[in-house]
Design a binder for these strands. Structure first.
Length: 816
RNA sequence: GCCCCUUUAGCCCAAUGGCAGAGGCAGACGACUUAAAAUCGUCACAGUGUGGGUUCGAGUCCCACAAGGGGCACCA
């Protein structure tokens, strides 16, 4: 043996095994007749924004722990990867450099792919998809048309969120605190005709089915989704309007306070407000127009400030309160939202904080109808409310609905915060919407056999954001004949939100290259849903909600037999540096490639797993990749020290070490399965320490138990540090493929203890401990405890009023 | 304003209601070495954010407060 072979050289090891694995393909999940049970482990696919960074390194290290674990447990694990490659960054980079977004995108994909290979991700490289490939996005179009057929994709004209910098519309979910989530510009409103997916039709199911994920998804994500969908129960109440044929319906969660309504407010930017104003005096019309102009100038940032003063304008019109016929003045204000409920509310200033502020600002009357001085919005006996007097909230709500239901003036209903999903984007780098607009036939779906509608080349197109889709400039592409009547017609020039791409990609991995179907229905039955999904919490609302929606639609269409896409979810935390997220402006970016060059792939990977619970953030300044490298070297040396032959019978090995090995085998699985990777690594370290001691001590390197422990260590290490593990496996005389070396079960007979340490407390304080047989009876244990000198001293003159014992571990005397 | 999470040694983190310490980092000491590095070994360090409560017994369960982090927010 040369000196070289006795030294742990992580870089040599990397170079050695990578090509071997390329041949071996240990993670190929598509082998016909593979007898292993199936498991689907999925990491959220990356956006190809450049090379992999520390965040990717964490995500894929942790996803790999899970995926590799199930392989070691004897499962056929499908662990695919792809790229979410449509989207604005590619387009913006293309504009900046005057290039086609394709070049930038596919160069980055190649870069990331090569980095993933070096990082030893356990992906099935025969299942790869790229959403900007025609072979992928044509099925986006196909799905869009399936949705369209069922009325789940539709076009409407309404006020939408608009990013003036990206020059495109934004989904509700993409506006964060009034800012565009991508570029942080202040979002504005614009009235446009746009395509929507009818998510609201699934609102109840999207909310209720979260219960089935309880315990398997982080509770934080569940509550964020519940919050976002925001169902509230209440009633729609209809008010007649003086001088108007049509009544106005409002939504309220407190119909019981109807007797306290003293005015009505409609959203200033609603059609209703404009119409009511136009039917009023010229004076009012002018005041309203002034107000509306002001409202439109203000952005969501100002709007969202809760301490903002209430503003509004009286419309000179009156509504009739259905419970008592009272005339209620109608005001327009921006504190009522046009797109929630009906865009109009009944104002109960005595029992709603916002209505109260408005009433105060404009000196409008207040009427108390619930007797509760402590909490104006709280419950209490109703007063000044005719037939509701004396009732509490719950009964009063039921009663008032019952009273008004007969005349059709009220009905129990519910409302959602969730809005339909706006999917049109006025940008180039996305899936073209497969619709043709014909003057005679209207919207005509592109026939399925004419798909895909290929994205035209960017050459000659002006990609700069200008408020309409750059595709409009592709004249040859836009102008087509109507599939229906043959007349001259035009393609829809918008592209789809890229969240459409990621809403079903987990199914596409089943047949990523199929030309004939989006995904094979039978394979979906076999593999899906995803057993374990791994990704960042940043997608807690958007992506997960949309994917859940898609799954439910596909279920209803009959293409899948499940209606939740991701059975278990793990959200890993972020990698920080010195307490904050890495960013150029902070200048605290840690380059992954430098870490890999300095410490090696394995050390970085195991550091990610060992840093703490996976859902916690990792501050790179707090962890020690060089410490990890030290551990790996220490583990590696144990394998190098083993002198027994492979295949030796372990039974005769050192008992103490065998016990340590099998204790590890017992504990390791449950730890990994409950995502306690850091503890799992700690257990490995423990076993390595025991192994080291055995090699250097009585047992010696030839002891079969030493080999047994080293082989278990190699397999355990393979979850975190695949290169080191493979090399250990090789040193131990096995052919390449430690990743497939199924973990043995713990031998329980080795774990049986004959004695244990019993502890004795007096009044809950530890006083003594001694070794006892595990079979000691409660009585004997107490007797033994009482015989202890330390214990009797602690009891002293006191009287034992109670003795609690749990044989063989524990006794407590309560002494007075 | 509403909801959620976190708080254990200098640091990162463990601990089915039952001995506060599994593991690591940083540190001290020793062995090996001419010396150093590497390696191997030994050791010290907190009573669990604060105040109450439940319990024979609380880091763990309950209540209040504080600090830090996150989500939602004029949603009727």
């Amino acid at each position: 043996m040369t000196e070289q072979e006795n030294e742990y050289d992580v870089f040599a090891i990397q170079d050695r095994w990578l090509p071997v694995w390329d041949e071996l393909k240990p993670f190929n999940s598509g082998v016909e007749g593979d007898p292993r049970p199936k498991k689907y482990v999925l990491d959220m696919f990356p956006y190809p924004s450049g090379d992999l960074h520390m965040g990717h390194a964490e995500a894929y290290a942790l996803g790999d722990v899970i995926s590799r674990y199930w392989v070691l447990r004897g499962y056929n694990v499908m662990h695919p990867i792809g790229w979410d490659s449509f989207g604005l960054p590619a387009e913006n980079a293309a504009i900046k450099r005057g290039l086609d977004p394709r070049g930038w995108t596919y160069d980055n994909i190649a870069q990331q792919r090569s980095s993933m290979r070096r990082y030893a991700c356990s992906f099935d490289w025969d299942r790869v998809l790229v959403t900007s490939d025609q072979i992928y996005y044509r099925w986006n179009q196909w799905l869009f048309l399936e949705f369209y057929k069922r009325g789940l994709a539709y076009r409407k004209n309404s006020a939408v969120n608009w990013c003036p910098s990206c020059q495109t519309v934004l989904a509700n979910e993409q506006v964060v605190q009034g800012l565009c989530e991508r570029c942080d510009s202040v979002a504005t409103k614009k009235t446009l005709t746009q395509w929507y997916f009818k998510v609201t039709e699934y609102a109840d199911r999207l909310l209720d089915d979260l219960d089935t994920l309880e315990g398997n998804w982080p509770s934080k994500v569940l509550s964020m989704q519940r919050n976002w969908i925001g169902r509230s129960y209440g009633a729609e109440v209809t008010f007649d309007i003086e001088g108007r044929n049509e009544p106005v319906t409002v939504f309220t969660t407190r119909p019981d306070t109807l007797f306290g309504a003293t005015f009505m407010v409609v959203a200033a930017d609603s059609d209703l407000a404009a119409e009511l104003a136009s039917g009023s005096t010229p004076d009012v019309r002018m005041q309203f127009q002034d107000y509306l102009d002001k409202v439109k100038q203000s952005n969501d940032i100002e709007r969202l400030a809760t301490d903002r003063e209430k503003t509004g304008v009286f419309l000179g019109r009156y509504a009739i309160n259905p419970v008592n016929g009272e005339k209620l003045p109608i005001w327009a204000s921006d504190y009522v939202l046009a797109d929630y409920g009906t865009g109009a509310i009944m104002a109960v200033p005595a029992h709603d904080l916002r209505d109260g502020e408005f009433a105060k600002a404009f000196d409008l009357p207040l009427r108390v109808v619930v007797d509760n001085e402590d909490d104006i919005a709280g419950d209490g006996p109703h007063i000044n409310s005719g037939p509701l007097d004396g009732l509490y909230k719950k009964d009063a709500i039921a009663k008032v609905i019952e009273l008004l239901e007969a005349s059709g003036k009220a009905k129990a209903t519910k409302n959602f915060r969730l809005r339909d999903w706006l999917i049109s984007r006025q940008r180039y780098w996305g899936t073209p919407i497969p619709i043709i607009h014909c003057d005679a036939c209207g919207e005509v779906p592109v026939p399925a056999d004419s798909l895909p509608v290929a994205l035209p080349s960017a050459e000659g197109l002006d990609l700069k954001p200008k408020g309409t889709s750059p595709l409009g400039g592709a004249t040859d592409w836009v102008n087509v004949s109507c599939p229906n009547c043959g007349a001259a017609a035009k393609r829809d020039t918008d592209t789809m939100d890229t969240f459409v791409d990621s809403s079903w990609y987990f199914l596409r991995f089943l047949s990523p290259n199929s030309e004939t179907e989006a995904f094979p229905v039978q394979a979906a039955k076999d593999w899906a849903p995803v057993d374990q999904y791994v990704g960042g919490v940043t997608h807690a609302i958007l992506h997960l909600l949309y994917a859940r929606f898609f799954t439910k639609v596909l279920h209803d269409i009959g293409l899948v037999d499940f209606d939740e896409p991701f059975t278990r979810l793990l959200n890993q935390g972020m990698v920080l540096m010195n307490g904050s997220a890495m960013s150029k402006s902070r200048g605290n970016i840690v380059a992954l490639s430098e870490q890999l060059d300095e410490h090696g792939v394995d050390a970085v990977r195991i550091t990610m797993a060992f840093a703490g619970p996976p859902e916690d953030d990792i501050d790179w300044a707090d962890v020690s990749p060089s410490g990890s490298a030290k551990f790996l070297a220490r583990a590696w040396r144990t394998a190098n020290d083993v002198t027994s032959e492979a295949g030796v019978d372990f039974a005769t090995g050192n008992k103490e070490l065998r016990k340590a090995t099998h204790t590890f085998l017992r504990d390791f699985g449950p730890l990994i399965e409950s995502f306690k990777f850091n503890v799992g690594v700690a257990k490995l370290m423990e076993l390595v320490n025991a192994l080291r001691k055995a090699i250097d001590g009585e047992a010696g390197p030839l002891d079969p138990a030493v080999r047994e422990a080293a082989e278990v260590v190699a397999r355990g290490v393979s979850l975190f540090a695949p290169y080191t593990a493979e090399d250990m496996w090789n040193k131990l005389g096995h052919p390449a493929g430690v990743a497939l070396a199924v973990l043995p079960e713990a031998d329980e007979t080795l774990l049986v203890e004959s004695t244990t340490i019993a502890v004795v407390q007096v009044n809950g304080k530890l006083r003594d401990k001694f070794e006892v047989s595990v079979e000691i009876t409660k009585e004997d244990l107490i007797a033994k405890a009482l015989a202890s000198e330390v214990v009797s001293r602690a009891i002293g003159d006191g009287e034992i009023v109670q003795q609690i014992a749990s044989a063989p571990k524990f006794v407590n005397f309560v002494v007075k």
